[in-house]
Design a protein around this nucleic acid. Structure first.
Length: 1146
RNA sequence: AGUCCCGUAGCUCAGUUGGUUAGAGCGCUACACUGAUAAUGUAGAGGUCCCCGGUUCAACUCCGGGCGGGACUACCA
């Protein structure tokens, strides 16, 4: 093989990115890499489907780098990693995008402005709008993903699986209809999403009538303690509300468990009647001004502005739990179990009375707590048989004529309710009402006041949401919805979650675990158009339901309906059950409005209509393990190969999204986790820690970043800068640093290798030199390399990519480049092609090649380049790409911790000596006679002898002298060893420490000699052994000394004439090398050198001409009178200017 | 409001089971090196380890309570 290792002028990672992509394409490398080796089987990875209706951002590079790195690693380990791509195609953002593009609103859909058909068509088109950009990013960033047959959530086959899953849940009773309190606009007749509620200007300050109502307690065992020492027959609980219109729907009161409450005797400020009331202690003075406490009850007359009060009792909220009270407003009787005091976390003492009025039909918290305690909501039966709240959807108190007659007879107090029935709860809902008309709130408050049930009525300004379309106040209103009974699986969800390996662990146990503990049923309903329709058909009387679980079933049901004459033809007529081709599944559409047009027949022969809701898109993505396989219609037998996933990764913002729905659906349908390992990464912020946004123009464009730097530095930076679950403050300076520091150094190391390997024609043709015949430093780097392989492998296995990358970077920049190559440079240039040189090449080659394989998962482009440059030249591996190689194994036998320690000592000592040289300003080129090292322990000498030559060469010193630790010239320092002393002496530590550090030199020496030292503290005899202290030789008076930890080194700085001559010779070598380079000579060119004779250099050149010649490839080095010779150069050495003439030889 | 993450040098981050000189890189300053060379090395300056309490002989580390930044979820009488 005449091949040479490729040499490059510069490192252009952007170009490498493109070149390697081309090579991967030409060789079909990705497809080749999807295979298994040695029966390892599949490593199952799930791709969280992105939505292609937005353009990809830099944060996508983050999550995808993590995914790609793990998948590439597992591939190298021999697993088959299939990586099917997918697209999330449904959902609100897509609908909103289309609405915006078409200039329409939700209300226009299904009208003459735009039909549902056309709207959904637009969505279907729009959803794949940026597919090109996504695929482009996927490719350029090196994210290997199979994009040939992505799963699409709008595909009928995908939807069919969703329906199948829903039917499983339905059949087991885990899919049910209920209601939820949602923001609702009576004026627009529509529910509002939280997104709509967060539009600017929605929250407005409005002035509303507020009321503190008095709820009379029922005297029984539980409440008895509240009736002690009273002079009033009744006791009232005070509760505040800003919506008095909800008071008739009150069915409970809530207090805080930990909150302190008090019983107060006072007077009703309106009627002047004596009252005994309960409220939170903290709010006493906001209702009863402190000054009034001094007024004697006898001084008070009804009508007085200042009402006296007296606190009688105090108790925690927990004591109030379970107490019953009389209904405040007797219009309608609810079911049994109402009018109880409950405890809730949400109760505060910030305003009001510290007691919250609960109307389960009009507040989300209210609904939740009522459900928890089984308190019935105030619901009324309508003429059509349905149950609903006291307010209708137009925002009016429901007219009695709309109610079921029997219900009215049994439950409604006609006399009291008829006065208020039919009135709007907010005046804004009735155009005929002016601003000045008394509101329902006012009238209810006045009614309470007149019956002595109100304590305070006042207008207050507060912030309240308004409908963005009609500008009228929003109502929190119970809306019908379908739920998945996730709460039935709470225990199992938690149990299985505990088996998942979360990175970071805290997200699993904390954010996700807590979420599971506080689980509520999953509200599946969405009143939208573009999404998976709920496959449930119901009769008009809502008594018969049918859930459809497949296209085949639907087709058959329609046939029945056709027979009954409900439908004319079957939209699925052409569909052939069992044929799973795309073509077959494109013969119909399961989306709206087509499914809405399907009428089915009930068992009793009635028409059944589809429930108009769509399902939450999160069900789409959470069901992806099943639906991407079109399970169980396809892949039924081999499903266990594809489920559950070994690994997933997404941003932490998916905790309540994808992670939750994946987990829940898997647990509920398969009693299994959906994924075994998970990395959830944090956010990518701008360099100042702000969220990236289009508005702030601080978003980083992934495409231009990759174009400029290449993907590798970007990927490397993202993984190694900090743990991926911490937020990343993205800074280009960091990417730049990675490029220079890591890739630059690695590239330099390779270039160095290539340059000399080509000169020497090294092709790794020689047999590996046996490890025991290699020099110490080669065995050292090989030992470190094996340690590195072990560590990096462990990190990858542990899904800790940050540590893996950092370990590699540390090895490359510190050990390989800065130490191994630097110290060994001379072995590569000049000299014979002997065993030592071959060993040096082999070691360096092995390091580089192994690094490429270790690092390929993180930096797939450059590492493939590096691997190919090495391996194609030597033919050591038959694989054409590093991504087809096996992850390297380490050899425990090659790891020599003693050796690694020895080299560590060498590095430390060298660094100390270089520091000393600097302190006294003696250049490294100037040889010095010796160093002295006091022996810190018995084994040191042996260890250091092994690396002595390295150190001496590195620091340019002739010899080393060891100083026995008993030598009198040493000044010693003693330190207590807290780790051993601490447990033994505990409290005496402080005294011992001061005694020990106060020991004299003599005492230290005798301590060392006797191996122990005794003294007493507070009459207690204490004997320390040598293990209890650390003694170091800190100083040698009269020498240049440095120490670090237990190591101490002294440098002899005397420069004899002999040493000076040698130093001058080295200076000449340096100058001549510079001239060679300036003249553009090739590394192998021979030269001749003439040096101007000068007293200063004469002796040095005479003695060391041969040395200079050997270092500079000079055939002759001579002294001459070079006064004006052309081509001569002037060099300066120690401020002496010398002329020198360098020419190519021969 | 709840849950979680983060808070260590000007910046980005390490810091093993608590142990007494708290580290690295970048940046800054100075010096050096120079056949890896638009690289590199050595050193210096720079820290109330967010604050307050507690446990302990000993706390950056463990516990409690705050504060600040961020995310998610929820939303109120």
């Amino acid at each position: 093989m005449g091949k040479r290792f490729p040499e490059y002028k510069t490192l252009d990672l952007s170009k490498i990115n493109k070149d390697i992509l081309k090579i991967w394409d030409e060789n079909d490398t990705f497809r080749k890499s999807v295979r298994e080796i040695d029966g390892k089987g599949e490593f199952v990875f799930y791709e969280g489907p992105p939505s292609a209706n937005g353009i990809p951002g830099i944060h996508h590079v983050m999550a995808r780098t993590i995914k790609d790195t793990i998948c590439r690693y597992k591939t190298q380990c021999g697993y088959e990693v299939k990586r099917k791509a997918g697209w999330d195609t449904h959902g609100l953002p897509i609908e909103l995008g289309v609405e915006k593009a078409l200039g329409i609103t939700k209300e226009d859909i299904g009208t003459e402005k735009i039909s549902i058909i056309d709207f959904n068509k637009a969505c279907r088109r729009d959803v794949m709008r940026y597919t090109d950009q996504w695929e482009d990013l996927t490719r350029k960033m090196g994210y290997w993903l199979n994009m040939d047959h992505p799963y699409l959530t709008y595909d009928n086959r995908y939807i069919e699986t969703l329906w199948w899953l829903l039917k499983q849940l339905y059949t087991k009773g885990f899919l049910y209809q209920g209601y939820t309190i949602q923001p609702y606009s009576p004026a627009a007749g529509t529910g509002l999403s939280s997104h709509e509620l967060n539009l600017p200007g929605c929250y407005k300050d409005v002035k509303d009538t507020t009321c503190i109502a008095l709820f009379q307690l029922i005297r029984d065992e539980k409440s008895e303690f509240l009736f002690n020492h009273n002079d009033t027959p009744s006791v009232h609980i005070m509760a505040w509300t800003t919506t008095p219109w909800t008071l008739p729907s009150n069915t409970a009161l809530a207090v805080g468990k930990e909150i302190k409450y008090i019983k107060v005797r006072s007077f009703n400020p309106y009627s002047g009647e004596p009252i005994t009331v309960i409220l939170a202690k903290d709010l006493l003075h906001s209702l009863f001004p402190e000054a009034n406490g001094g007024i004697h009850f006898s001084e008070y007359k009804p009508g007085d502005k200042k009402v006296p009060y007296k606190v009688i009792d105090e108790f925690p909220g927990s004591k109030l739990e379970g107490i019953n009270y009389e209904q405040l407003i007797d219009w309608v009787k609810p079911d049994k179990g109402a009018f109880r005091v409950l405890t809730g976390d949400f109760v505060t003492t910030e305003d009001g009375t510290g007691i919250v009025h609960i109307a389960p039909t009009f507040g989300a918290d209210d609904y939740k707590i009522a459900k928890e305690y089984n308190v019935p909501p105030m619901i009324l039966k309508r003429k059509d048989g349905s149950m609903g709240p006291m307010v209708d959807k137009k925002g009016y108190m429901i007219p009695i004529s709309d109610l079921d007659d029997k219900f009215v007879k049994e439950r409604v107090n006609f006399n009291t309710y008829s006065v208020f029935a039919g009135r709007p709860v907010k005046n804004e809902y009735d155009e005929s009402l002016s601003e000045n008309t008394d509101t329902l709130d006012v009238d209810i408050a006045v009614m309470l006041k007149l019956s002595g049930k109100a304590f305070r009525i006042e207008k207050q300004v507060h912030s309240y949401p308004h409908c963005w379309r009609t500008d009228k106040p929003v109502l929190y209103y119970p809306l019908d919805a379908w739920f998945i009974r996730t709460t039935a699986f709470r225990e199992r969800l938690i149990e299985l979650n505990n088996t998942i390996n979360w990175k970071p662990q805290s997200t699993g146990s904390g954010r996700f675990g807590k979420w599971l503990e506080n689980l509520v049923d999953w509200n599946l309903s969405r009143s939208r158009f573009w999404g998976t329709p709920l496959p449930i058909w119901i009769t008009e009387d809502r008594k018969e339901e049918k859930c459809i679980g497949s296209a085949e079933e639907l087709k058959a049901e329609i046939e029945k309906s056709i027979k009954a004459g409900f439908m004319k033809k079957n939209p699925l007529a052409a569909f052939i059950p069992g044929d799973n081709t795309q073509e077959n599944y494109e013969k119909f559409d399961l989306h709206r409005p087509f499914v809405d047009e399907i009428i089915l027949i009930s068992p009793s022969g009635k028409k059944m209509f589809r429930e108009p809701d769509l399902i939450d898109v999160w069900f789409d993505s959470g069901a992806m393990p099943y639906a991407q396989a079109h399970y169980p219609f396809e892949n039924k037998e081999n499903f266990s190969d594809k489920f559950p996933a070994d690994f997933i990764a997404e941003g932490v913002d998916q905790t309540r999204g994808w992670f939750f729905t994946l987990h829940t659906i898997a647990v509920m349908t398969s009693d299994s986790v959906a994924f075994k390992n998970i990395i959830s990464n944090g956010l990518v912020l701008d360099k100042n820690g702000n969220k990236m946004s289009k508005r702030l123009k601080n978003a980083v464009d992934p495409f231009s970043t990759i174009e400029e730097y290449g993907s590798d530095p970007l990927r490397w930076y993202m993984l190694t800068n900090a743990q991926p679950w911490d937020n990343l403050k993205f800074d280009f300076a960091g990417v730049d640093e990675v490029k220079r520091k890591f890739f630059g150094t690695l590239y330099n190391t390779y270039s160095f290798f290539a340059l000399y390997a080509n000169v020497d024609n090294f092709r790794y043709n020689e047999k590996d030199i046996p490890i025991n015949e290699r020099p110490e430093i080669d065995r050292w780097i090989i030992s470190l390399l094996n340690s590195l392989v072990k560590e990096v492998g462990n990190c990858y296995e542990d899904y800790d990519l940050t540590r893996a990358g950092r370990a590699i970077q540390d090895f490359v920049t510190e050990n390989l480049s800065n130490w191994y190559v630097r110290l060994n440079r001379k072995r590569y240039w000049g000299g014979d092609y002997d065993q030592d040189k071959i060993a040096a090449y082999q070691a360096l080659y092995t390091c580089l090649e192994t690094i490429s394989m270790l690092t390929a998962p993180i930096a797939p482009f450059y590492m493939d380049m590096l691997f190919r440059d090495l391996s194609i030249t030597t033919g050591k591996y038959k694989e054409e790409s590093v991504h087809l190689t096996r992850f390297p194994n380490y050899d425990e036998k090659l790891i020599d911790k003693d050796l690694e320690e020895r080299m560590d000592i060498a590095q430390k000592i060298s660094s100390m000596i270089l520091g000393l040289r600097r302190k006294v300003s003696i250049k490294v080129r100037q040889p010095l006679a010796k160093i002295m090292i006091p022996l810190p322990d018995k084994t040191f000498k042996k260890k250091f002898e092994a690396v002595k030559d390295l150190v001496l060469t590195e620091v340019n010193v002739k010899e080393v002298e060891y100083i026995d630790d008993t030598a009198a010239i040493l000044v010693k320092k003693i330190k207590p060893n807290f780790k051993t002393l601490g447990p033994k002496y505990g409290k005496l530590m402080k005294e011992i420490s001061s005694v020990v550090s106060g020991l004299s030199q003599q005492e230290i020496v005798s301590f060392e000699a006797n191996k122990s030292h005794s003294f007493s503290i507070n009459e207690q005899q204490i004997t320390l052994t040598i293990e209890d202290v650390e003694i170091i030789s800190e100083d040698i008076p009269g020498w240049q000394v440095a120490n670090e930890g237990r190591l101490t080194v002294a440098l002899d700085i005397t420069v004899t004439d002999e040493l000076r001559y040698e130093g001058i010779a080295r200076e000449f070598v340096n100058r001549i090398q510079n001239i060679r380079k300036e003249n553009g000579y090739d590394v192998t060119d021979k030269i001749t050198v003439q040096i101007e004779d000068h007293e200063f250099v004469h002796e040095a050149i005479k003695r060391h001409a041969a040395y200079i010649g050997s270092q500079t490839l000079a055939t002759s080095v001579s002294l001459a009178a070079l006064v004006k010779s052309s081509g001569s150069r002037e060099v300066e050495i120690d401020e002496v200017v010398i002329k020198i003439l360098v020419n190519k030889a021969g």
